[in-house]
């Protein structure tokens, strides 16, 4: 087995795995830039995952399913934001509450509608469209790694670009960043900082809805707690990516690669699955610590 045979599928998988991280982190970035901690990413992904697949099954349309799934996710995100901002609840606690609500609500509704609290299969669901250009499929590297993914993958790349433009090239982006740096300054200008914070949270609801939709639609099923820590990893990717869209792309890739490698190792080497699944968390902690050591060094003369 030569290295290309090993590396290409690995990287191909990485790109698939990193996409939910990337989407959730990009949305979370808007919340973060508005000066709020978005612990709720995890729960929002779960909400998006459940409602997209359910609506897709009910309507028979993937597109409608995703659209409605995102809508519900944004409603839950709005509740999270409104309670934090208007009712002045601790944003960290209300984030945890959102996660708890998401895991409770999805199971309760699953039980109510499907009489089942385990895996719910949707067999008649259409497959997610894959994006391929036949002519380019043959090009080595490009074809092997970057083509043949579901549309969500390419959407997430567009999202990176879009995030960059919105954050650095629009009045909204300036005001949002200003809010995160100094709310009083924004208020003194006669702007309403809370509106920008809510917007930041709604955007995270949008992208988490997408991320969740990807998880269930590619599987054709809903699994309880299918978000499985992805929201937390996305949160760390925001910090590791230094709160910049491109940085987040790179950080998400790193996490995707770690998981992809551990998936391979699981089959190739005889290491217990639980250990390998613990691996990304430990890498993340290590990355966080290294990052803070670096920051610490920088701040000390």
């Amino acid at each position: 087995m030569n290295s290309a045979q090993f590396a290409f599928p690995l990287l191909h998988n990485t790109i698939g795995i990193m996409t939910p991280f990337l989407l959730a982190a990009l949305g979370g970035l808007f919340t973060e830039l508005g000066g709020m901690l978005n612990i709720a990413l995890e729960g929002l992904i779960l909400i998006g995952a459940f409602f997209s697949v359910v609506f897709a099954a009910f309507t028979g349309s993937l597109f409608l399913g995703v659209l409605l799934g995102i809508a519900v996710t944004m409603i839950i995100a709005w509740i999270f934001g409104a309670i934090s901002i208007y009712l002045k609840a601790n944003v960290f606690i209300s984030g945890l509450a959102t996660n708890l609500l998401a895991s409770g609500l999805t199971v309760v509704l699953a039980f109510q509608f499907f009489g089942n609290k385990g895996v719910i299969l949707f067999q008649d669901l259409p497959k997610l469209p894959k994006f391929t250009i036949a002519a380019l499929q043959r090009v080595p590297l490009l074809g092997d790694i970057f083509l043949g993914h579901s549309v969500f993958v390419y959407l997430s790349w567009v999202a990176v670009l879009l995030a960059y433009v919105v954050i650095y090239r629009t009045p909204f982006g300036y005001r949002l960043r200003g809010t995160g740096i100094d709310q009083k300054a924004i208020r003194a200008l006669g702007l309403n900082p809370q509106r920008y914070q809510i917007a930041g949270i709604l955007i995270s609801g949008f992208t988490c809805g997408l991320a969740g939709a990807l998880l269930t639609l590619q599987l054709g099923a809903f699994v309880p707690n299918i978000s499985a820590g992805r929201g937390w990893i996305a949160l760390v990717a925001i910090y590791l990516g230094n709160k910049k869209p491109l940085g987040i792309l790179i950080a998400s890739f790193v996490f995707g690669l770690a998981e992809s490698v551990s998936n391979y190792a699981q089959g190739a080497i005889n290491v217990p699955a639980d250990f390998i699944l613990a691996f990304p968390y430990l890498i993340t902690v290590a990355a966080m610590i290294l990052f803070s050591i670096w920051q610490h060094r920088k701040s000390v003369v």
């Binding site: 309670i83 009712l87 609840a89 606690i93």
Partner: peptide, 11 residues
Amino acid sequence: SVIFFLVTARA
């Protein structure tokens, strides 16, 4: 979760 949401609400 509802209790969680509201328990720190200063408002």
